[in-house]
C-alpha cells in the first residue's frame, strides 16, 4: 500500500496527464455525437460577442462579390418567374390565381435573417456560427440557405447564437434530387475542395446529364423542395457498384458566406415528430 502511495506521489503528473487527456477526448466525442454542450463552442455568450465584433469588421471585405452574385441570381430568378408566370397564364387563363399560388407556397415557411460570424472551410468537419439563437426562435434541425443555395442545417442553439452544420461537414446528409428528372439521392461531403460535394445512392437507371441542376428534394422536413444546391460536374460508379456517385459543383461559395436565411416550417415540426415516433416504435 505504501509503495502504491509512493508511486502515485512520484508519478502524479502522469495521473494529471491521463485525467486531462480523458477530459479532452470526452469533450471531443461528446461534441461529435449529436448535440454537445453549447458552453464549449462558439455559440456561448462571450465567444459569440467576440465573433460579432470581428464579423462586423470582416464582413465588409466580401461585400462586392456577394452583391454581384445576388444580382446575377436575382436576374436569373426574374427571368424564370416571368417564364413560369407566362406558362401558367397560358394554361389556366387566370391571372389572380398566380398571386394566390405564390402566397400559398411561402405560407408554410418563415424566413429568419442571420449573419455569419464565424466560419471554417478547410477542416474535415466544418462549422458555421450565426448570430441568431433560441431567443430569435431558432431551433436545431432548421434549414439554412443563402442567396445562391443551400448552406446547411442548424446543429446547436445558444441563447443568441447558433452553430450550423454546413454541407462542408462529413456528418451532413441532405436529401436532394435532379431537378429535371426527379431522381433523388443524398448529398455528402468528403473533405477536400469546398466547392465540390457528392451525391450518393443515385440509382443506376436514373437519367441525368452533366450540367444538370441538383435541388433539395423536399422529402425531409428541413428544406422545402426545389432549393438549388449545385450542378453535376462529373459522374463515377459508387464503391459497391450499385449506384452512381455524382460530383456536384456547389452554388454556395462557403468561403464568402455573409448573410444567411434560416427556414422554419410549421409543418416541419409535425413531420419530424411523426417520423421520430415511427422510428422509436420500430426500435422497440
Amino acid at each position: 500500500m505504501r509503495n502504491l502511495i509512493n508511486f502515485l506521489i512520484k508519478y502524479n503528473h502522469w495521473l494529471l496527464f491521463v485525467l486531462l487527456e480523458t477530459v479532452s477526448f470526452v469533450l471531443l466525442f461528446r461534441f461529435n455525437n449529436y448535440q454537445g454542450s453549447v458552453y464549449f463552442t462558439s455559440a456561448n455568450r462571450l465567444c459569440g460577442a467576440i465573433y460579432d465584433m470581428t464579423g462586423q469588421v470582416t464582413r465588409y471585405f466580401g461585400l462586392a462579390d456577394v452583391n454581384r452574385d445576388l444580382t446575377a441570381r436575382n436576374v436569373e430568378l426574374e427571368i424564370e418567374v416571368e417564364r413560369l408566370t407566362e406558362a401558367l397564364e397560358h394554361y389556366t387563363q387566370d391571372t389572380t390565381g398566380i398571386a394566390r399560388l405564390r402566397r400559398e407556397a411561402l405560407a408554410e415557411y418563415t424566413l429568419h435573417e442571420a449573419r455569419v460570424v464565424n466560419n471554417s472551410i478547410t477542416r474535415p468537419n466544418n462549422f458555421i456560427t450565426i448570430d441568431k439563437g433560441r431567443a430569435d426562435g431558432i431551433r436545431p434541425e432548421m434549414g439554412v440557405v443563402c442567396g445562391n443555395g443551400v448552406v446547411g442545417i442548424v446543429y446547436l442553439t445558444g441563447a443568441s447564437h447558433s452553430i450550423v452544420l454546413p454541407v462542408l461537414n462529413s456528418r451532413s446528409n441532405i436529401s436532394c434530387k435532379i431537378k429535371r428528372t426527379d431522381y433523388f439521392g443524398i448529398l455528402k461531403w468528403e473533405g477536400g475542395s469546398p466547392q465540390y460535394a457528392y451525391v450518393k445512392d443515385m440509382p443506376r437507371h436514373s437519367e441525368f446529364s452533366l450540367g444538370d441542376t441538383i435541388v433539395t428534394s423536399g422529402h425531409s422536413a428541413v428544406f422545402p423542395a426545389g432549393i438549388p444546391i449545385g450542378t453535376v460536374d462529373d459522374m463515377t460508379d459508387s464503391h459497391d457498384g450499385l449506384s452512381y456517385l455524382l460530383k456536384v459543383r456547389l452554388f454556395t461559395d462557403f468561403a464568402r458566406l455573409n448573410n444567411v436565411q434560416i427556414i422554419s416550417s410549421a409543418k416541419g415540426t409535425e413531420q419530424t415528430a411523426l417520423e421520430d415516433s415511427a422510428r422509436i416504435a420500430l426500435e422497440r
Binding site: 471531443l28 464549449f40 462558439s42
Partner: peptide, 11 residues
C-alpha cells in the same frame, strides 16, 4: 471553445 473543436486542441 473559440474554434468549435471542443477537446481537440486541449488533447
Amino acid at each position: 471553445i473559440l474554434s468549435n473543436t471542443p477537446g481537440l486542441n486541449a488533447a
